[in-house]
Amino acid sequence: MAEEIIVAGWMDYEPADRDTMLGHLVEVGMRTRAAEPGCLDYAMTADPADERRIRVYERWVSQQALDEHFATAHIKDFRAATTGLTRVGVSMEVFSIGASHSMR
């Protein structure tokens, strides 16, 4: 069984661009969850304490599923739609998860 992958971190955009970017991320997230069975979770949220920051959380069944995600038509569309938005910072990490358990 392949290790699950978690992508987590943040992206900062100019305050005037953040909500526009967030709208595009919501759209690509809906398309990703609907079309990619390897996607277990895909959430992008505005940070309420920072007008620039978008928090990122993705969970994938494998690295291969994540790699295939970047080759989809909806990611190509997303990249084209967000070309003019100004990102001013980013911190993203990919974690390979060998085991997990329910937290109660």
Rank of each mutant, 00 (worst) to 15 (best):
M1Q: 12
A2S: 14
A2V: 12
E3K: 04
E4F: 11
E4V: 06
V7L: 08
V7T: 15
A8C: 10
M11I: 15
M11C: 12
D12Q: 13
E14D: 14
D17T: 13
D17L: 03
R18S: 03
D19G: 09
M21P: 10
L22Y: 09
H24Y: 07
V26E: 14
E27C: 05
V28M: 07
G29E: 08
M30Q: 15
M30P: 04
R31L: 15
R31I: 13
R31V: 11
T32E: 04
A34Q: 15
A34D: 15
L40F: 01
L40T: 00
D41M: 12
Y42H: 07
A43H: 13
M44S: 07
M44Y: 06
A46K: 12
D47T: 01
P48C: 03
A49P: 08
A49Q: 14
D50C: 04
E51F: 05
I54H: 07
I54N: 05
R55N: 13
V56M: 08
R59F: 14
W60C: 06
W60T: 01
S62M: 01
S62R: 06
Q63F: 00
Q64E: 08
A65T: 11
A65Q: 06
A65F: 04
D67V: 08
A73S: 10
A73W: 01
H74K: 13
I75F: 00
K76D: 07
K76M: 05
K76W: 04
D77W: 00
A80V: 01
A81F: 01
A81E: 10
V88E: 00
S91F: 07
S91L: 09
E93G: 12
V94S: 14
F95P: 04
S96E: 13
S96I: 00
G98D: 08
H101K: 12
M103C: 06
M103A: 11
